[in-house]
Design a protein around this nucleic acid. Structure first.
Lengths: 269, 269
DNA sequence: TGTTTAAATACCAATATTTGGTACTGTAAC
DNA sequence: GTTACAGTACCAAATATTGGTATTTAAACA
């Protein structure tokens, strides 16, 4: 049961809920998926019973409380977060006011922030918000993740996004692109100033999750106004150490696998 | 497409991910839903493609990044949150350090916190965490929500949960139960001390969402050590005013409905 | 390096679920 | 009271899902 087609359909319903358009009517759903009345209502009712969507008066449906419940289960049950959170809290505790610590990962040719730890006190905004997919080609977080992706995937990305990549000021040719990424890879970390948010400095280092192609990074985001060069290089050391720690712990957590061999399977396709 | 049965199945898969057991194997899923190998793998693959679940090395699957994306869309698109958040921020801004402001609602015979605003500074813990279903029979938030539920539903709840209700010290008989709730309803707010978290005082007031049976509440949670009686009565006034404001704004937001008639349809079933 | 074991996928006819037309109900507007 | 409309019930026809088995792939082993 629950064949792949119905799951796709369900996913299509959930996709109708966007940031701008949070309220979806049954008619919207029927129209978008090409369903008849009966089927439309039935689908919506079934979804509402699971709590994934939620009826709001006569106007339509919004995403439901079950989403929050799942969110919480992800927060508590996800091994990456379990490993990363204490490290992030430690980093935040050692950092100056107005600093943000971010955990991001690759997600569908984009980068998504999974978790943030903020130091006390007022914060300048950070565009990388939890759950918001961000472009791959700007910002220290995106770039270290990008640089860590396997070559064939980068190839495809460049072919598709050459224009975007040029526009982001990252590279004007395929050669330049690969060279730039190679340098980031070699450096093992990346600092960018005001690339995404004016007045912010991002400092990021990558990690790998398990034998699979899940690539992520840890970032420290400083306020440009208050950060000295020494602060930046200190943050860089910290973030690299913490990211390596994540890689190690995630690999170590995989049961018996005592040997440090790792990474055999091909990453993504 | 996406018939109700497949949606149930999908929901059943998501239910396997719990706080304690965040990592689920394909075998777990096949066993839990009684699927054969082929179907099990297919289902899992389809779900992974939507991003709802996410493969973590060889060990199995965890809830995936799509959950975070949906979480964010709920945060930005949900009209209740849109209305409540500014009010909550205002309340938090006016409150003493260590205060938490909570938005909760009824959810499947439980109460779930949808959002929190904390004042700056260290916080004693609050059990009502976002996305965590809480029992209906203790704590000011739960009780004001409970008291606002329609009578027939209360009847069924009492029949089912008489033992729980007695154990929570709420009522030893059906009469006492309804009388206690009636008083809460009449008071329009509720204060409870250390009922859920030691050292915390909860102050809650209910609101209704639209013509439907969605009942929620706004709560201010103070630290028992620092709150004077005056602080408490001030908070009570604030929380009642803000909750009423939510009710009003949610009703007003429903287009033309200029008349203040409202609430015709029966609440839940 | 070659062999064994296990995990995961491809395939396709049988099956069970989904589907959509119409008819029906209750509620709100007129 | 009547009309319009959102939402549901029903059931035979159509379709997607299912589950054996065979096959592929990759890791573990010797």
């Amino acid at each position: 049961m629950a064949g792949s087609q119905s799951i796709e359909q369900l996913s299509a319903v959930l996709e109708l809920f966007t940031e701008q358009h949070g309220l979806v009517t049954v008619d919207d759903i029927m129209a978008a998926l090409g369903l008849t009345r009966s089927t439309g209502y039935r689908t919506v009712r079934a979804l509402a019973e699971t709590g994934l969507i939620d009826r709001v008066s006569d106007e339509g449906y919004v995403l439901g409380p079950r989403i929050l419940e799942l969110y919480r289960q992800l927060q508590t049950g996800n091994p990456l977060l379990a490993v990363a959170r204490p490290l992030m809290m430690a980093l935040a505790a050692e950092s100056a006011k107005g600093t943000a610590v971010l955990l991001c990962r690759s997600y569908r040719d984009q980068v998504m922030c999974l978790h943030q730890e903020m130091t006390y006190g007022p914060q300048e905004p950070v565009s990388y918000q939890v759950g918001k997919p961000m472009p791959l080609y700007a910002g220290s977080s995106s770039l270290v993740v990008l640089a860590a992706l396997p070559r064939p995937r980068l190839q495809r990305l460049y072919e598709r996004d050459a224009a975007l990549i040029a526009k982001a000021g990252l590279a004007k040719s395929s050669e330049e692109f690969f060279r730039a990424l190679k340098e980031i890879r070699k450096a093992g970390s990346r600092v960018s100033r005001g690339e995404v948010d004016k007045g912010r400095i991002g400092i990021s280092a990558p990690f790998v999750q398990g034998d699979l192609g899940i690539i992520g990074c840890l970032s420290i985001v400083l306020s440009e106004a208050h950060a000295s060069d020494m602060d930046i290089s200190r943050a860089r050391l910290q973030v690299v150490a913490a990211a390596d720690d994540i890689t190690r712990q995630l690999a170590g957590g995989e049961r018996q696998k005592a040997a440090g061999v790792a990474v055999k399977r091909k990453a993504q396709k």
